[in-house]
Design a protein around this nucleic acid. Structure first.
Length: 242
DNA sequence: GCGACAG
DNA sequence: ATCTTGTCGC
């Protein structure tokens, strides 16, 4: 796949203010509502998992495409990193490697799951939103910790599997206060013991609503905390790193 | 100035 | 993200 919006391709050489300005434009173009070409819940739907690993100064992006529980295609691309990790600007660090991997992909996914946030972002343009809009591909952000926003109820106590707690915009997010920008989703939990598993933070990237994004991620989980496409992309990136 | 911050 | 041992539970 190639970018549909070349102007949105992340450029690590930009100044921080240019990056933030681009994010405002991307958020303005993003659609945080269901707008797919094909039904992403159909058993024939192609769901991609995207994750990055690092090998020295290189960022390695791994993409695994699945259909009905089986791997259809997987690709990876390695690109030297230009900038360090900066909260709020993650897509400018990892974006080039991700787009290089998508360029190698022969399959056209119906939706992609990214490691990181989508709308749960200061300017509503996290990694999943940035790449999703640039490719004009339905996308979802799956993060393991919360960047910003406020849960409508405490997440300090363990939640049962399937629980969802809305994440709403607060003063640190450009969306109006109270806007649901994502969900904490308890994808897995220990049935006994003292320890407990933290929830995933799911948010819409592009062309999907917060509710549908949570439905999709929940449906892609197969006994592990992470949805299968993400989990396989994760281990693929890990084996490319060693 | 203070606090908060995906991967 | 990445560096790593021990520890808990089935």
């Amino acid at each position: 796949m190639e970018p549909v919006y070349p102007d949105f391709v992340p450029d690590p050489a930009d100044s921080h203010s240019e990056m933030e300005s681009l994010q405002v434009d991307i958020a303005d173009t993003a659609i945080f509502a269901d707008a797919f070409e094909t039904d992403i819940f159909d058993s024939h739907a192609l769901v991609a998992g995207v994750d990055q690993g690092f090998d020295g100064d290189d960022a390695i992006s791994a993409i695994v495409v699945m259909r009905d529980g089986h791997v259809v295609e997987r690709v990876h691309a390695s690109v030297p990193t230009q900038i360090p990790y900066i909260p709020g600007l993650l897509s400018f660090r990892e974006g080039e490697a991700i787009l290089a991997a998508f360029a190698k992909l022969e399959t056209e996914p119906d939706v992609a799951l990214f490691d990181g946030s989508g709308r749960i972002h200061f300017r509503e343009a996290g990694l999943a939103t940035h790449i999703g809009v640039t490719l004009d591909l339905p996308s979802v952000g799956v993060a393991k910790s919360l960047l910003c926003g406020r849960p409508t109820e405490s997440l300090d106590d363990p939640l049962p599997v399937g629980s969802r707690v809305p994440i709403v915009a607060d003063g640190n997010v450009t969306a109006p206060d109270g806007t649901v920008i994502g969900y904490a989703l308890q994808s897995r939990q220990y049935d006994s013991g003292n320890r407990y598993i933290n929830p995933l933070y799911v948010s819409p990237g592009h062309r999907i609503s917060a509710e549908t994004a949570a439905d999709l991620v929940e449906g892609c989980c197969a006994g592990y905390k992470l949805p299968e496409p993400t989990r396989l992309a994760d281990s693929y990136a890990a084996e490319l790193t060693g």
